[in-house]
Amino acid sequence: MNTVKWGVLSTADIAQTQLIPALKRAENAEIIAIASRGPKIHAIAENLEIKKAYESYDELLNDHEVEVIYIPLPNDLHKEWVIKAAKAGKHILCEKPAALNEADLEEMITVCNEENVQFMEAFMYQFHPQHIRVKEIIGSGEIGEVKLYKSSHSFYFENRQGNIRMDAQKGGGAIWDVGCYSVHAMQLILEKEVKSISFKKIVDSETTVDVSAFGIVEMENEIHGMIDCSFDMTERNEYEIVGTKGTIKVKNAFRPDRLSGNGQITINTLTTERIEQIGGDIYKLEVEYFSDAVRTKRDLALQHNYSRQNVRILHAIQQSVTTNQQIELADYLCND
């Protein structure tokens, strides 16, 4: 099968350090073009050994050889360029969060469906095989009935001045940037409806962006979640599942690539402890999954539903930290 040809829309750090190298490692994909606004793109493309360089995003979308567009633009620009890419007939992998409210996300999904192109939000962590193993352990009954989900994702953010993560208008803040992983994994692993959320935040005095958030999630079947995210704490990217008979802890849940792809699952019961090591190249696996979806026209409805629930819950968290109230999800609309 021919490799899928990719183009990258912007020179964002994640594109240069993660996605483009992964495209070069992937067995069913190749990077052939990159775009930025201005002539600097030519030197960058040469350094990255990419044969085509465009000085505007529209030029890239007009390249008929490019099949897939990867979009790592600031959060507030995702909708505009996903829709433009779809109307240009390109399949789209869009960085998380794909949208900042449900209405925008639904429009993006609708346009992609109408244009018959594949669309997926880039939560790369989910393709690591450790999460499949976690679900297997839960299903086996080893830790009993699940009662609690705990997840933390943080890093100490230096050099904040002028960074888009500190711009509320561009979808900045710890909730959208790192909290989104914990919310997404909660759905991926537990597959339970969220009933209500209650969160608190700490804000940056200059930008008013949330730099930390802490909260409680109530799910169906009397399962609860405890989530924290932060730009003000040491690096953590983990979740723990607590059952009636034991626990499962995934230490490197969201960024196992920082440890050469090594995932670590610790299973504890009253009398035993077991550690399982599982490897996986998350960015390569993500690229190969989406490239395969393009070639086989795989149904990505489940991915779209994860994205829908994610933006709904994240928006509700934002509302909770702003109003200092518990938000009931059943009646919540987040289309502002």
Results as ranks from 00 to 15, higher is better:
residue 36 S to R: 02
residue 36 S to T: 04
residue 36 S to W: 07
residue 37 R to H: 11
residue 37 R to I: 04
residue 37 R to M: 07
residue 37 R to V: 08
residue 37 R to P: 05
residue 37 R to K: 10
residue 38 G to D: 00
residue 38 G to F: 00
residue 38 G to T: 01
residue 39 P to L: 04
residue 39 P to E: 07
residue 39 P to F: 07
residue 39 P to V: 11
residue 41 I to G: 02
residue 41 I to Y: 00
residue 41 I to V: 11
residue 42 H to V: 14
residue 42 H to F: 13
residue 42 H to M: 07
residue 43 A to I: 05
residue 43 A to P: 00
residue 43 A to V: 06
residue 44 I to E: 00
residue 45 A to K: 05
residue 45 A to I: 06
residue 47 N to P: 09
residue 47 N to K: 15
residue 47 N to F: 04
residue 48 L to M: 13
residue 49 E to G: 15
residue 50 I to W: 00
residue 50 I to E: 01
residue 51 K to C: 09
residue 51 K to V: 15
residue 52 K to L: 12
residue 52 K to T: 12
residue 53 A to T: 06
residue 53 A to H: 04
residue 54 Y to L: 02
residue 54 Y to W: 05
residue 58 D to T: 15
residue 58 D to N: 13
residue 58 D to M: 13
residue 59 E to Q: 11
residue 59 E to M: 08
residue 59 E to I: 02
residue 60 L to G: 12
residue 60 L to D: 05
residue 61 L to S: 12
residue 61 L to F: 15
residue 62 N to P: 12
residue 62 N to C: 13
residue 63 D to Y: 15
residue 64 H to E: 14
residue 64 H to D: 15
residue 64 H to A: 15
residue 65 E to W: 09
residue 65 E to S: 09
residue 66 V to G: 10
residue 66 V to C: 03
residue 67 E to K: 03
residue 67 E to A: 02
residue 69 I to G: 05
residue 69 I to R: 05
residue 70 Y to T: 14
residue 71 I to H: 06
residue 72 P to G: 12
residue 72 P to R: 01
residue 73 L to C: 10
residue 74 P to E: 02
residue 76 D to M: 04
residue 76 D to Y: 08
residue 76 D to V: 08
residue 76 D to P: 05
residue 76 D to C: 11
residue 77 L to N: 05
residue 77 L to P: 01
residue 78 H to F: 11
residue 78 H to E: 08
residue 78 H to L: 13
residue 79 K to Y: 02
residue 79 K to E: 13
residue 80 E to T: 14
residue 81 W to A: 11
residue 81 W to S: 01
residue 82 V to D: 01
residue 82 V to K: 03
residue 82 V to S: 09
residue 82 V to E: 06
residue 83 I to Y: 02
residue 83 I to T: 11
residue 83 I to F: 02
residue 83 I to Q: 11
residue 84 K to W: 02
residue 85 A to G: 14
residue 85 A to Y: 06
residue 86 A to D: 01
residue 87 K to Q: 14
residue 87 K to I: 08
residue 87 K to M: 07
residue 87 K to V: 06
residue 88 A to C: 09
residue 89 G to T: 04
residue 91 H to D: 05
residue 91 H to M: 05
residue 92 I to R: 03
residue 92 I to M: 01
residue 92 I to D: 03
residue 93 L to H: 00
residue 93 L to N: 01
residue 95 E to V: 08
residue 95 E to K: 14
residue 95 E to H: 13
residue 96 K to G: 04
residue 97 P to V: 14
residue 97 P to Q: 04
residue 99 A to E: 00
